[in-house]
Design a protein around this nucleic acid. Structure first.
Lengths: 170, 170
DNA sequence: GTCTATAGTGGGATAGAC
DNA sequence: GTCTATCCCACTATAGAC
C-alpha cells in the first residue's frame, strides 16, 4: 500500500477528479489512466474508499498550508476561497461527507483548522466563520448565486461582520 | 404532465428521497412504490430531471413558507435550520447543484429568498447571511463538526455578528 | 503485479403490443 | 396508460491463471 505504484494510483485518481469531476473517479478510469486494468488496483488498495482517503489527506495538507500562509481573518478567508476555486472537485470531496477519521493521519484535521482558531479564539465564532466561508464557497461552486451578484462584496461584508464580532466579543 | 398520476409520482418520489436518501431516487424505485413499472412513468414525465425539478419546486415553496413565518434574523435563521433538519435529503437536492431555472415556476426563487432580504436590506450582508446559514446547515448535515461542538452556540454567535453588522452598517 | 473473465447490482431510457 | 422486452450503460469487487 505504500509502494511506488500506490502513489501513481493516487496521483492519477486525483488528476481525474480535478480534471473531469467526481463522476470520473472510478476504478476503471483510474486504471485506464495508468494503462492497466481495474482489478490490478486492488493489489495496492483494498477498496475505492482507501484511494479517496489518500486524496483527501493530501488535499487537507495542502489546504492547511494555504490557510497557514495568512494571519488575519480576511487573509485566511481569501486563501480558503482561492483554494476551493483552484480545486473545486477536491474541495467537495473533502467537505461534503463525514470524514473517515480512522483512515486519516492522526491530527491532520486539527492541523488544517488551526489557523482559523488562531485568528478567532472564540470557538463559537470560529465555527460560525468556518461554516460561513464554507457556505460562500459551496454556493459559489454550485452556481447558486444570481449571475450579477457581487460576491466580493458579500465576502467583504462577511469578514467585516466577523471581525467586528471578534473585536467586541473578546 | 399535470394529470393526477403525475402528482402521485412526485409524491412517491419525494417520499423515497426523504425516507431512503438520494440514491433511492430512481425511476425503478419510484415505479415500485406506485405498483407500476418504470417505463410507465415516461408517459407522465419526459425524464428523471423533470421529476426532480417538481420536487425542488414543491420544496422551495415550503421553504419559503417556513422562512416567511419569521420576522427577525434569528427567527428566520432558526426556521432555515429547522427546515433543513426536517428535510435533509430534500435540502441537499435543492442546494447542491445549479437551479434549472427554466424548469421552475417564474419568481419562485425570489419568493423563497424574500424574507431574508426583508430582514437584511443590505444585499451583500444578506448574501453573506444566506451563505453562512447554508454553511452551518450543510456542515451539520454532513456531520463535519466535532462530536461535542456547541452548534447552538455557533448559530448564536453567527446571528449576533450579522445583527450587529446590520445595525452598524445601515 | 498484471491479466482475463465474471459475478452482481444498479441505473436511464426506448419500442411496440395491448 | 400500462405492460414486456430490451438496450445500453456504468460501477465495485473477486477468483484464479500467468
Amino acid at each position: 500500500m505504500s509502494d511506488a505504484r500506490a502513489g501513481e494510483i493516487v496521483t492519477a485518481a486525483r488528476a481525474l477528479l480535478e480534471g473531469h469531476g467526481r463522476e470520473a473517479l472510478s476504478m476503471r478510469r483510474i486504471a485506464d489512466e495508468l494503462g492497466i486494468k481495474a482489478p490490478s488496483i486492488y493489489k495496492h488498495f483494498p477498496d475505492k474508499a482507501a484511494i479517496e482517503s489518500a486524496i483527501v489527506a493530501d488535499g487537507m495538507r495542502e489546504w492547511g498550508d494555504a490557510l497557514r500562509s495568512g494571519q488575519t481573518l480576511r487573509e485566511i478567508a481569501a486563501h480558503h476561497r482561492a483554494f476551493a476555486h483552484a480545486h473545486p472537485a477536491l474541495y467537495e470531496l473533502m467537505t461534503d461527507s463525514p470524514l473517515d477519521r480512522s483512515r486519516l493521519p492522526e491530527g491532520l484535521e486539527a492541523q488544517t483548522a488551526a489557523p482559523l482558531f488562531a485568528a478567532l479564539p472564540d470557538r463559537d465564532l470560529a465555527r460560525a466563520a468556518w461554516a460561513a466561508a464554507h457556505g460562500m464557497v459551496s454556493l459559489e461552486l454550485a452556481g447558486r448565486f444570481p449571475d450579477g451578484a457581487d460576491l466580493d462584496g458579500a465576502w467583504a461584508a462577511l469578514c467585516s461582520a466577523l471581525e467586528a464580532a471578534a473585536a467586541s466579543g473578546a
